[in-house]
Design a protein around this nucleic acid. Structure first.
Lengths: 206, 206
DNA sequence: TTGAATTGACTCGTGGGTAAGTTACCACGC
DNA sequence: GCGTGGTAACTTACCCACGAGTCAATTCAA
């Protein structure tokens, strides 16, 4: 039992403590956003004191960057894994969504953190966010480009806009799911399949 | 000429000044978001002093609420006007988008303000944002519901998710346009028509 | 006893909000 | 025409809460 905690108590190895702070920070950042979150909030959520966070992460930005790294690697990893499966078109989208639902099932805050509109723009943060968002956009541009080509549209700005739209569809599905914690990843994947079917006709099987 | 401005100079009627502050505030809030904007920023942009803003609007929230009201009424007005035209399905979506592009052409900041993710949640603000977003969602739910019914899907959560997706498609198109100031409303409307055509097949004419 | 982990109590800058004074316009009496 | 108060517009200079970041001390394991 660690119920009695007096000042200065060590007891927790550095790596464990770091993990614990990151988890708490992720939850709080995910729920409130970077801007609306104070370091004291995170400290309270982690059950430690504020200076300890500075000891471990240097700054509020530093802490957020680490959270973002966790979230980004989680998402990029899953996206790459899904891409390996070799599906194309809508099938690839469904596979990717399914993968994202499953990884987010363990860390629900990762999506909100990766998409936090109040995130600060410092040093390598852009690259970090970009890492997963750029990858998603690549895949989106590919699939969308194919669609537009079939339709006889080769306008670059059209491709650009359509990519942005498709990315937002993807994000919107994930966000909707995050707002409905009762829905299992499997159920959500099936829902996506139904919705895609309704929009694009029924011929979804490879 | 009002080039020489000494302390305490009146010179501007209350209504004019109010209009002027609102316009400046809208620009700044739209560009930086509510959270990242200080009242001093707005004062500087409007060419006046900070206390004057408090004199006119009471608080930072009050100022933002007024901006939001302007933006919301602009959008709701246009949405209603478009809805009057009696188009249905994708045609209605295109008409609405076209209307929104045209009203936003004069006040580009309105969209960003109405969709500011850092907006504070005070008193009647929710209603205000809701005013336009709820109306858009009603229309979305209607059109989407029709689509799902045709596809034989009567699941309520499916309808819910699909509505959210469609709303985000709409928002994404507008946002993309806001990020491309060189594109005229007309050109953007044509782009939307092309893109819808590419996705949903070509039978778009009523 | 040494040193790492940890904290209470601080500093300090920033930004929302205010009090009190300053300027200019506008009656109005003469 | 011209002082002269009244008042509305406007500003300078301030207060204060809050949150990022720091430091010296305190606790505990080895």
């Amino acid at each position: 039992m660690t119920s009695v905690r007096r000042s200065g108590t060590k007891g927790v190895a550095r790596a464990d403590r770091e993990e614990q702070i990151l988890e708490a920070a992720g939850r709080v950042f995910g729920a409130q956003g970077f801007a609306a979150t104070s370091v004291a909030d995170v400290a309270r959520a982690a059950g430690i004191s504020k200076p300890l966070i500075y000891n471990y992460f240097g700054s509020k930005e530093g802490l957020f960057e680490r959270c973002l790294r966790v979230a980004s690697e989680l998402l990029v990893g899953e996206i790459e894994r899904s891409a390996q499966l070799g599906a194309v078109g809508l099938q690839r989208a469904l596979v990717t969504l399914d993968g994202v639902f499953h990884v987010l099932d363990d860390r629900p805050w990762a999506w909100a953190v990766a998409n936090d509109p109040t995130a600060p723009d410092v040093d390598g943060l852009g690259d970090l966010i970009g890492a997963y968002r750029r990858r998603l956009e690549e895949l989106a541009r590919e699939g969308v480009g194919e669609l537009l080509t079939i339709a006889g549209d080769d306008d670059q700005l059209d491709l650009d806009a359509m990519t942005s739209v498709w990315s937002s569809v993807f994000a919107s599905l994930v966000t909707w799911w995050c707002a409905h914690p009762d829905v299992s990843p499997e159920a959500m994947s099936e829902r996506c399949e139904r919705l895609f079917g309704a929009v694009f006709g029924v011929g979804l099987d490879a």
